[in-house]
Design a protein around this nucleic acid. Structure first.
Length: 293
DNA sequence: CACTTGACCTGTCCGC
DNA sequence: TGCGGACAGGTCAAGT
């Protein structure tokens, strides 16, 4: 579930909630995959440390700590990072929260701070992970060495984007933009949304897409990601922010989960097919697949 | 090598 | 209502 806008929303929320807090206790309900560190590493480098900052690169979250250590977190499909103050219920109105009292059966790790507040790492499908490591080692992670540019950074010009995506000329365009080494942060939702915006059929080979269409695709990717960050991300089923609240991008989605509904551009009914092994939503009238001769 | 497919898990929904 | 199968937003390893 969490793609760039969701992870960025969690990052923003956590920045407001946990910076300067001091870790006092960690309870791991499901190791080693969720949290592979040994007790002695945790005692030595996490307990007693202070949160300096919360950062993001692609879909990875990093909680930087004193003593030059960091917690690195990937939410994968169903991961959540939810903060709770001293009272164990969601922030705001009860309706804002998708989840009840914590920990619950999806809780993998519980972190406690010196002021009594807590941070929960929940993950129903157990694909996500949390790892405590020296901050300097983050750059050596294989993922960090291969991941492409941030789509919302000014450095990602259309020239750079076209150059990178052309390396996947033989792939279908949806697969190429889902590839984190092409650019960072696009997942299934925003792939479909941006391809609709650029009027490109998701199964078109990259080689059959013109440069100016790729430039438009990049523009649409930037647009949908920025819009979604503004809306607090997409909550399809699982995703919640650091306060347990849902995001509202889905209300603005043009194709994702809108099969059978009229296209906002032409009125044809949105269809759902499989492309690159993923559920794919598109308009069969304004996104026509082209095949090279 | 470039690209696609299956595996990792649990929960939910749909059809019989 | 019960049960089997398909499917779910990400990434990697294995296979073609």
């Amino acid at each position: 579930m969490p793609e760039l806008p969701e992870v960025e929303t969690v990052r923003t929320g956590l920045s407001k909630l946990i910076v300067k807090k001091i870790f006092t206790k960690v309870t791991v309900f499901d190791s080693p995959k969720s949290f592979p560190n040994t007790d002695s590493e945790v005692d030595q480098f996490l307990i007693g440390s202070t949160v300096l900052a919360v950062a993001r690169r692609a879909k990875l979250l990093m909680i930087h700590l004193s003593f030059d250590y960091s917690l690195v977190i990937h939410l994968k499909m169903t991961g959540q990072l939810v903060y709770r103050g001293e009272q164990n219920f969601g922030a705001g109105h009860p309706n804002d929260s998708l989840i009840g009292e914590l920990p619950d059966r999806s809780t993998r790790v519980q972190f406690e701070f010196s002021d009594g507040s807590r941070l929960f790492f929940n993950d129903q499908r157990k694909f996500g992970w949390v790892k405590l490591m020296p901050t300097v080692e983050i750059a050596n992670l294989k993922f960090m060495q291969t991941v492409g540019p941030e789509p919302l950074e000014p450095g990602l010009t259309k020239k750079v984007f076209i150059e990178r995506i052309r390396k996947r000329n033989n792939s279908v365009v949806k697969s190429a933009i889902l590839d984190q080494s092409t650019l960072a942060g696009v997942g299934n939702i925003y792939a479909d949304e941006s391809l609709w915006g650029a009027e490109i059929h998701p199964a078109t080979r990259v080689r059959d897409v013109k440069d100016e269409e790729l430039a438009e695709l990049l523009k649409q990717i930037k647009f949908v990601l920025a819009l979604s960050i503004e809306k607090g991300g997409s909550t399809d089923r699982n995703y919640v922010d650091a306060e347990g609240k849902r995001g509202s991008y889905i209300d603005f989605a043009r194709v994702f989960r809108r099969e059978g509904q009229p296209c906002q551009r032409c009125g044809y009914l949105i269809e759902k097919i499989r492309v690159a092994g993923r559920g794919t939503h598109f308009c069969p009238n304004c996104q026509i697949e082209r095949v090279s001769p």
